[in-house]
Nucleic acid binder design. Structure first.
Length: 885
RNA sequence: GGGCGCUUAACUCAGCGGUAGAGUGCCACCUUCACACGGUGGAAGUCGCAGGUUCGAAUCCUGCAGCGCCCACCA
């Protein structure tokens, strides 16, 4: 039984149209003031913990952000209404190269570890005069301060968008990946891994970006198709004879250290074990056999250089070949001298003359010059009068490795780097991935594939400035040699440190870079090293073990699929290495927003849609509707029509509430079978939506809720009870109708609240919020107890369904007879089996009132005959159109 | 080259073993007292192609094609 009070709501007291912009401003402020979405630190209520993706704030905002973040928010809101203590923080990823570039330009500064201290607090944006001077050099701490300052502005823009969009984030849990806290966490992570032996430093050939001048990790590398050409170049055999190799990188000829052919290739078998002589440089290099050589590719015999590609690195290791690094860290040809131990040559004078032309030149320029030289017969290794280039270059397209943010191909450069050991953890990491629920499930395959195919340990050191410093120093021997074998790390209590500024334990600043003193590791961590700690940063980890225990492992990690191999992978790796567990129970992978031509939106293509004007035009709720109509993991073409549909729903919710709350009746129970039947079916819809939301299927749940709202409520039930709800003669019927309308609306608003937080909050507050004005977003999700109290039955539901069907059948008959909705029907015959007729009669007056039928005849069909409710109207006669006036 | 996903009405998408669905758009009608950002009704699809399993397939299996994504040693 449910009692209703006389309505306290006057529809005239609210605007006749929903003003989204005003509602958004009003309610986002109200929620923040009231702490509606605050995580309750001390509560023992079950928690729901979200590992929010920190957006890169230096990037631009586009609809993709709105799309994926809204999908997380609906889950947060649902769980909150289910009574969970929701932990929903927001981080900002301000760490990394994009920010570094912006800060350099904005303030006209450069970072240089070891630069003198400088107070940046008064530094302003550089003006033209300042730009004429060389950039100011800053030590790392000062540079980081500027980055923090500049990104604070970007973060404001993001925060404004998130608040406008109605993300139910707990803003007291805000963090950024370069903050002191995050730096401390990253360094603690390093110390923990260091103590457990999971990190090591090594001088080795590493993938290197020549523009950013830093090492990069496998996860940040992508293949891009590039035009190239096979160059067929004749080598001499020292004992006599020659052969022709094919290469796409002739500029690496001076770095050639060996020649390889397949062991079973009859053409080259006699050469194995002998020495070849390179053209131009006359370097003697061994010829060895390797099954990795494809006899069908090129000429079937190839030159091995340090380093042309990953196979070169492998051969270099396996065959213990010498290192001849000609490409410098800037991508230009380094100065080397032939005729020395490192660069042997049978004709040093000719070799040096040839090499002199390319010193300091870029890779492409060097290639051009070397090819030109190879066309000259003088360059041949055996002086037989023929040019080493035996044919014109044969164009081809091949995949070349690039740093994902880079513009020029990666080179393999030997350098000292820090690595996290992951190859030895592959099986465990795969196991962790399998323990996690992936939504949608097929995304787990991406994780597995990546983990299985991991080739190298995680290179975490970067030769950059704006990042978390690697907290390491090295001893310098009495003779001035740096001892990389035994790195020194700081006291965990003293973090964060900057080793280029702070001295290691037991040393003083005066001993920096001195014999018998110490030297700093001047590198910073890969930004993923910090980002992969987003759960630990948010919980406080070892700094607040009790809090960490409550929040970790987390419930869900929302993210997009292109960073499974980075963010998801590294976060799983960190949780495993640090605590031997998974970081979260579920991963929710959002799809991409594609442009209407189904192409990925990207700044370079110029097809990016920015979100603000959409919010202005359609309102946040409608934009959210669009985001939430798309299932997890499914890429969706941007379609403004869906925004219109969302807007339509918002307006309908607003108007339906205005109407329902305007109905008045004396208190009375919900007793009419049609009313009970309506609520019974609403219960069904609620149960289905609840089950779907529990499985994170928010989009199908929205479909269920929305469909019931339109078809089950506004288009049918509401129309049928309009008459009874203002009846002067049927007091109990009127009380029942008004109570059921209010009850149904109350429930529907709560079901829609996670999707359309603004309009639902607005409508809720007209009456349902009560004296306390408690937010709908803290109201309970409609549950079984609530419905049980209504004592509905399946028979009621049958009455309601027959009534809906009859309404449709009569409307159809009316339209076909040429009538309109408002036209009265003089007489109508409704033919159905007795059982259906019986159900029909229980709601007859409501049906007739909604369809304006004046006189009804019923006709009982034989039970068991085929019968369709849609064609139950067997006769209809419209009433005459009343005279105008 | 390997893997994953998608292919259903003009458009955007649901359905995933039992007689083809929604919304938009289109057509007709309606100033009906919540809402014209509305209402009522209608037309519209051999569910990418070819096989197979089944009493029955858009739905399961196999193969193929197109699109997209992820991955793969640049000779």
């Amino acid at each position: 039984m449910s009692e209703v009070n006389l309505s306290r709501f006057n529809p005239e007291s609210v605007p006749s149209q929903f003003e989204s912009r005003e509602a958004e401003e009003k309610w986002s402020q109200a929620w923040e003031d009231a702490g509606t979405y605050r995580y309750a630190e001390d509560s023992e209520a079950p928690r729901y913990v979200i590992d929010t993706p920190p957006p890169t704030v230096s990037g631009s905002l586009h609809v993709g952000h709105v799309f994926s973040y809204t999908q997380t928010d609906v889950i947060a809101r649902y769980q909150r209404m289910r009574g969970r203590n929701v932990f929903y923080p927001m981080g900002w990823d301000d760490n990394g190269l994009p920010t570094e570039r912006r800060v350099q330009n904005y303030f006209h500064v450069r970072c240089e570890p070891g630069a003198p201290a400088f107070d940046v607090s008064a530094l302003e944006q550089a003006d033209d005069a300042a730009r004429k001077l060389p950039p100011r050099k800053l030590q790392r701490g000062a540079f980081i301060d500027l980055c923090v300052r500049l990104t604070a502005e970007d973060e404001k823009a993001f925060k404004a968008l998130w608040q406008r969009l109605g993300l139910s984030v707990d803003w007291s849990q805000e963090y950024s990946t370069i903050s002191e806290h995050s730096r401390r966490m990253a360094q603690l992570s390093f110390l923990d891994l260091f103590g457990k032996g999971h990190v090591y430093t090594l001088e080795a050939p590493t993938m290197w970006d020549v523009d950013f001048k830093t090492a990069v990790a496998q996860a940040e590398v992508e293949d891009r198709p590039m035009k190239g050409a096979f160059h067929r170049i004749r080598f001499a055999v020292e004992a006599g004879g020659d052969f022709t190799i094919a290469t796409t990188r002739p500029e690496l000829l001076p770095a050639c250290v060996a020649v390889a052919a397949h062991p079973d290739d009859p053409r080259y078998k006699p050469l194995i074990g002998r020495n070849a002589l390179t053209p131009l440089f006359r370097a003697p290099v061994p010829i060895f056999a390797s099954p990795l050589v494809d006899p069908a590719k090129g000429t079937g015999i190839l030159m091995v250089c340090t380093f042309g590609d990953a196979t070169d690195v492998q051969w270099w290791r396996e065959e213990k070949l010498p290192l001849r690094q000609t490409i410098g860290r800037d991508g230009r040809m380094a100065a080397v001298e032939f005729g020395t131990a490192g660069f042997p040559s049978r004709d040093p004078a000719a070799a040096n003359a040839a090499y002199a032309t390319i010193i300091g030149k870029s890779m492409f320029e060097s290639r051009r010059l070397i090819v030109e030289a190879l066309r000259d017969p003088k360059g041949s290794a055996d002086g037989n009068g023929a040019a080493p280039m035996v044919a014109e270059p044969e164009p081809l397209e091949h995949a070349v490795k690039f740093f994902e943010k880079g513009d020029r191909p990666l080179e393999f450069v030997s350098s000292r780097q820090w690595f996290v050991r992951l190859l030895d953890q592959r099986e465990k990491l795969i196991e962790m991935g399998d323990r996690i629920e992936w939504h949608p499930d097929f995304m787990r395959v991406r994780f597995r594939n990546w983990t299985e195919n991991l080739q190298i340990d995680w290179c975490v050191s970067r030769q950059r400035y704006f990042g978390v410093p690697i907290p390491v120093w090295y001893k310098v021997s009495a003779s001035g040699e740096t001892d990389f074998a035994s790195p020194m790390v700081p006291d965990p209590q003293k973090l964060p440190v900057d080793p280029t500024v702070d001295a290691p334990p037991g040393f003083t600043e005066a001993q920096r870079d001195q014999p018998s003193g110490f030297t700093a590791d001047s590198d910073v961590f890969d930004t993923w090293f910090t980002s992969s700690l987003s759960p630990q940063i948010a919980t406080g980890w070892t700094l607040d073990p009790e809090r960490h225990r409550k929040l970790f492992p987390m419930d869900v990690r929302p993210q997009s699929h292109e960073i499974i191999r980075t963010w998801a992978f590294y976060t799983i790796a960190k949780a495993w290495l640090h605590e031997g567990t998974i970081p979260w129970k579920r991963v929710a992978i959002s799809g991409w927003v594609l442009d209407p031509d189904r192409k990925k939106m990207s700044k370079s293509k110029g097809n990016v849609v920015t979100p603000m004007h959409l919010l202005d035009q359609y309102g946040s709720d409608a934009v959210r509707y669009w985001s939430l109509a798309a299932r997890l993991g499914v890429d969706t073409a941007f379609d403004e029509k869906v925004l219109k549909v969302g807007r339509r729903l918002v307006v309908k919710v607003y108007n339906a509430t205005r109407y329902v709350l305007g109905q008045e009746a004396p208190p009375g129970p919900i007793a009419h079978p049609l009313d009970l039947g309506f609520l019974h079916q609403l219960r069904h819809a609620t149960d289905r939506a609840t089950a779907l939301l529990d499985a994170m299927d928010y989009a199908p749940a929205l479909d269920v809720i929305e469909r019931f709202f339109w078809d089950g409520f506004t288009d049918s039930y509401l129309e049928m009870v309009k008459g009874r709800a203002r009846s002067d003669s049927d007091g109990p019927g009127r009380a029942s109708a008004v109570a059921a309308l209010r009850q149904g609306l109350n429930i529907l608003l709560r079901l829609l609240a996670p999707y359309l937080p603004y309009v639902c909050e607005e409508a809720w507050n007209w009456d349902f919020a009560g004296e306390a004005k408690k937010s709908i977003h803290l109201a309970a999700w409609p549950g079984a107890d609530e419905f049980r109290a209504l004592a509905t039955s399946t028979e009621d539901a049958e009455i309601y369904e027959v009534a809906r069907g009859a309404l449709g059948a009569i409307n159809r008959a009316k339209t076909q007879a040429g009538g309109t909705v408002g036209r009265h029907v003089a007489s109508l015959t409704f033919a159905a089996p007795p059982k259906v007729l019986d159900l029909f009669r229980r709601a007859e007056s409501d049906i007739l009132s909604a369809t304006r039928v004046l006189r009804l005849r019923t006709e009982a069909l034989a039970e068991g005959d085929s019968f369709e409710l849609g064609s139950a109207v067997t006769q209809i006669e419209l009433a005459p159109v009343p005279d105008g006036g």
